[in-house]
Design a protein around this nucleic acid. Structure first.
Length: 848
RNA sequence: GGGCGGUUAGCUCAGUCGGUUAGAGCACUACGUUCACACCGUAGGGGUCACAGGUUCGAAUCCUGUACCGCCCACCA
């Protein structure tokens, strides 16, 4: 039963299959709401691979899930894969040799030309959106199997029967249903407006997906010519290529240098377009020359000026990121049109070079460009700076344009209990700083289609005001192949017929609905959803508060008028030993599976659980070694303690030291329970571990002589009983952290999985902890004497003279029996002296 | 520019209500082939708790300010 040489190696395979076959983590659908603990688990992005950061944060959640399960809760602990999105599309194009052409009809017999090595000269085969999506699902399925293997190996106690994917049918149905409801209530709307645009990926990008990157650039001083002939007006710009899109000049209304010019006009260099000089408070006198050119559109300030000053639109950069191939009608001079020909069809970077050359030649650039480094907006997954182009897009109201809604959402955030609490500031900060609604449409394919069509008028033009929607019962739909209600396929794209919205939703627009997807909100019978919603906790990384957490809050606020969870539990990041974020590019990424094999899952989980909630944590293999030591110690100490005779049924702790140990154990149980209830797994572990080492090094060491005694009567029976009480509690206290070793040692002497046992409670046998410290002091003194004498700890002590205050002597005398045992002491002489401030020991070793 | 977090032993980090001599692991030194465990044990060395003021009988802990590190947001003609 108990192995002679217990080892933690190989425990994973044994227990994973046992848990699966016994259904230890299966959710009980009959549980009442009060008995349920529901977790809104993050679905990891499938297009990448799992890294050590996933191991870290998913372990945190798992410890809490295991604790709640042992507390008697039916734990709703689903798992999902976030497989919809751009990264997957790229991968699929590369491995299968296709590209998506949404205008094509679905081909049910289609097979991909390649699976893997696509020749370099291969011309991508166009496929319909449904076929493309099918391929994406095939490819991600393989990744998902690897994810599942790792998560099982990590010992996550998720209920695998609750698995979902964000591109799966359920997710599409939920996502479209929620969108249509947003639309019906006016929370979703479309608008033709300037939009942040990634021309490389050819898609619109939302505020939450943008990031700043420092790139090199240059200031260029450029002269504009006053139409009254009174000289030049000089501006400073980093984007001279936008000169042909210039619509006005702007300076601060109180800037005395430019006040006389307000209302006059200037002519743009090279292109000769007449533009007005205007005043606006957003212009800053101390930036550049104090006057700026407004272009449609160079940056977001341009958009503000354009809107507030009612300026014309002279956009030239198209969806493909190139300047329009024909000179626009607002450039009327021959010279201007000749100059424009040098930019036509070019990307901004090339156009800039061309414009700079032209300006230098014409003498309208003053001095040389001055190189600078400046922050520019990028799509976080993109490679080129974003441009601003006018497009029709779908939005969901998120408070970015509506103060009342913004206040409501901030209030929702304050209804959550945050762990750690200070993370709430990131939410408030983000919501407070929103500058527009949430742009959810993406010009991509592997996503959930926006489930609408538009009526086509008699002239063949789409009428975007006549939105055609499907019935909820027909969801999910793909407008590129399905027809709106009341129309025939033959009416697609013809006058009087309909046209599909070609876009998909932003991946966050689906993953913001994980509570609804996992909880079966779209099912006809919503009693189950009512059982688990709002969830108890959302665990996630602090870096995606602005995206995933906030987006989920927005959807829940609109749909359910409440926060989707009670608690938000944030995990930190994993930093490499140089305190930098671990990254693939640095080549310092270790594979999780390798670590699990090297140190054992329990050891890696130990390292993860040592990371405080929300705190970025260094990757530290040393902690894994410590975890391995701890797991090993649990095996060996359990084997040792269980090696003593099983106590009789009526055996009870009676020795003072045993009762003291059990009192200390009671405190530990209470502390660990409180910590876990507040999601502070790390504190629970730290306390448990610290007790455990004391238990092994001091308690067991001290009582083992008494426990070994034959015919020891009540004294040894007390030790035997106490060891087992403590062991039972410790095995359960460690179970959330080290599930494999915990179930292994539990199985040596108990029935059933430790993970299905009740969480330990205090035994309250009335022990007096005050005996522990003085005893430890005496034992340490004896050991020190032996060390100083360069002897063995087994050397006998012929006489130990103890001088201490009478109260301490009284305490020590209660444990004198154990003291003699652990110190190999023949005789103790006591001196109660209230003059002594502490315990003094004189140790006489037996002469050899 | 606004917000948040951090600064404790060589390293990684605990330190709860303000309370005795500030702790752990790793690393280091010495000792011990101990009858659960050498993936072990015992003992030891190692600290101006970032800095400066303040509150207090008492401050790593509370308050004010400063410095440095990190993150988030905003600005970026």
């Amino acid at each position: 039963m108990i192995p002679d040489k217990p080892t933690i190696d190989g425990l994973e395979a044994k227990w994973i299959s046992r848990w699966e076959s016994d259904g230890v983590y299966r959710f009980d659908r009959d549980a009442s709401r009060a008995e349920i603990f529901a977790i809104d688990t993050p679905p990891p992005t499938v297009s990448g691979s799992l890294h050590i950061g996933h191991v870290f944060s998913y372990t945190h959640t798992d410890t809490v899930a295991r604790f709640q399960r042992m507390r008697g809760k039916a734990v709703f602990y689903p798992i999902g894969w976030d497989d919809n999105g751009l990264a997957t599309e790229r991968r699929v194009q590369n491995v299968t040799g296709v590209r998506c052409d949404p205008s094509l009809p679905h081909d049910p017999d289609f097979t991909a030309p390649y699976h893997g090595d696509v020749p370099k000269d291969h011309q991508a085969v166009p496929v319909s959106r449904p076929n493309f999506v099918e391929l994406c699902r095939e490819v991600t399925h393989i990744d998902e199997q690897a994810f599942e293997e790792l998560f099982r190996r990590l010992g996550l106690s998720v209920d695998w029967t609750l698995l979902y994917t964000t591109i799966g049918e359920r997710a599409r149905r939920v996502s479209q249903r929620a969108f249509l409801r947003n639309l019906a209530r006016g929370e979703a709307y479309q608008q033709d407006a300037p939009t942040m645009w990634d021309f490389h990926e050819r898609t619109a990008v939302a505020q939450a997906e943008m990031e700043d990157r420092e790139i090199p650039g240059a200031f260029h001083k450029i002269a504009f010519h006053r139409t009254d002939g009174a000289g030049d007006l000089v501006i400073d710009t980093t984007r001279p290529e936008l000169l042909p899109s210039c619509v006005a000049m702007v300076a601060h209304p109180e800037d005395e240098r430019y006040q006389p010019l307000f209302g006059t006009t200037v002519r743009t260099p090279l292109f000769g377009v007449e533009v007005p000089v205007l005043a606006h408070p957003l212009a800053e006198p101390d930036k550049g020359t104090g006057i700026a050119m407004i272009c449609t559109f160079g940056d977001v300030t341009d958009v503000t000026w354009w809107r507030e000053l009612s300026l014309p639109t002279r956009a030239l950069i198209g969806f493909d990121g190139r300047f329009a191939s024909e000179a626009p009608e607002w450039i009327t001079t021959e010279a201007g049109r000749d100059n424009y020909a040098k930019l036509a069809g070019r990307y901004p970077k090339q156009a800039r070079t061309a414009v700079v050359e032209l300006l230098a030649a014409s003498g309208e650039m003053i001095g040389e460009p001055r190189a600078i480094t400046h922050a520019v907006k990028f799509y976080e997954r993109g490679s080129q700076p974003l441009e601003i182009v006018g497009t029709r897009q779908w939005y969901i109201r998120n408070g970015g344009r509506d103060d009342a809604l913004r206040r409501d959402l901030v209030a929702r955030g304050s209804e959550l209990t945050w762990h750690p609490d200070y993370m709430r500031h990131r939410y408030d900060n983000w919501v407070g700083g929103l500058n527009g609604d949430w742009l959810i449409s993406r010009q991509r394919f592997f996503g959930v289609p926006i489930p609408v069509w538009y009526a086509v008028d008699a002239d063949g033009n789409p009428d975007y005001d006549r939105v055609l929607v499907p019935a909820e019962a027909d969801l999910p739909v793909d407008p590129s192949t399905d027809c709106p209600p009341g129309y025939e396929p033959s009416q697609r794209n013809v006058p009087g017929g309909f046209i599909a919205d070609p876009d998909v939703m932003d991946t966050w627009a689906t993953s913001s609905l994980t509570p609804q997807i996992a909880g079966g909100w779209e099912e006809a019978d919503d009693a189950f959803f009512e059982q688990i919603f709002p969830y108890d906790v959302r665990p996630q990384g602090h870096d995606i508060i602005r995206t995933w957490l906030f987006a989920t809050m927005v959807r829940s606020h609109h749909e359910h008028s409440c926060p989707p969870w009670r608690h938000a539990a944030l995990s930190g990041w994993i930093l490499d030993p140089d305190r930098k974020k671990m990254s693939k590019s640095k080549g310092n990424v270790v594979t999780p599976i390798g670590l699990l094999e090297q140190y054992g899952t329990d050891a890696v989980r130990y390292w993860a659980a040592c990371g405080r909630p929300g705190v970025d944590t260094a990757f530290d293999e040393g902690q894994m070694k410590t975890g391995r030591k701890l797991a090993n110690k649990i095996l060996n100490s359990s084997r040792f303690a269980l090696g003593f005779p099983e106590p009789a049924a009526d055996a009870a702790p009676s020795a003072a030291l045993d009762l003291a140990m059990l009192a200390r154990l009671d405190s530990l149980i209470e502390e660990a329970t409180t910590a876990f209830e507040g999601f502070d797994y790390a504190r629970a572990l730290e306390r448990t571990e610290s007790f455990f080492w004391w238990f092994c090094d001091d308690y067991i060491e001290t009582v083992k002589e008494r426990a070994y005694r034959e015919n020891g009567g009540a004294a040894s029976a007390s030790a035997h009983a106490s060891l087992r009480i403590a062991l039972s509690a410790l095995h359960r206290l460690f179970a959330p952290f080290m599930p494999f070793v915990a179930d292994e040692v539990w199985s040596w002497w108990q029935e059933g999985s430790v993970h299905a046992q009740p969480w330990p409670t205090a035994s309250r046998l009335g022990g007096d902890e005050r005996v522990i410290d003085p005893l430890a002091e005496v034992v340490a003194a004896v050991r020190r004497a032996k060390t100083e004498a360069k002897g063995s700890q087994r050397d006998r002590v012929s006489m130990l003279e103890i001088t201490a205050p009478s109260s301490t002597v009284e305490l020590l005398q209660r444990v004198a029996d154990d003291m003699k045992g652990v110190g190999s002491i023949d005789e103790i002489r006591w001196t109660a002296s209230d003059a002594a401030s502490q315990v003094e020991c004189a140790v006489t070793l037996t002469a050899l």
